[in-house]
Amino acid sequence: MYKRLITAFAFASITFTASAETVPERAAPCLACHGERGTSETENTPSLGAQQAPYVLIQLFMFREKLRVFDTMNDMAKDLSDDDLRAFSDFIATLPKPVPPKDAGDSARMARGQALAHQYLCNNCHQPDFSGNDNVPHIANQREDYLSKTLSEYKDNSRHGYDGTMADVMQPVTKEQIADLAYYIAHFR
């Protein structure tokens, strides 16, 4: 896996310096890790399919400005212009929705996750189908490992959100609840 990432980056730096390529061509290295068809098969790496363009723009901006710290993405984004950020965001929003896992999920865990998602009203800002809206991301069928990691990082504020909303929202959510929420949202149908 790691090797594959490295290869992708080598390719990335070449691609980003070249000009006169289409956005999908330039985005190929992104999709090498994030999944060609909107669904990521890479550990801890999010699926990007059908992501809300304004949310992607905020994240790419934060990676470029190192407001969100993750070396790989900080490197990928560092030379992107404002127009690049907009173009990649718009392109990413056109990728097909992430595919749900084949198994329907353990019914007891799904029930617990659903109750929590309703209790904490994830389904309000993120919408009842978790497709997100504007600056609020699409989370339906996101990778379980990535959801779990992200929710934990918001909770301990090691991932700074654009604003403090998710840091606040996660305060009362326990570790066990994060696991159930991630499971439920990843398996959502």
Partner: peptide, 15 residues
């Protein structure tokens, strides 16, 4: 008490 508290309130909150 503080843990449950916030501005982000917005995002949540029904029952």
């Amino acid at each position: 008490i503080l843990a449950g508290a916030f501005f982000g309130a917005l995002t949540l909150a029904a029952h």
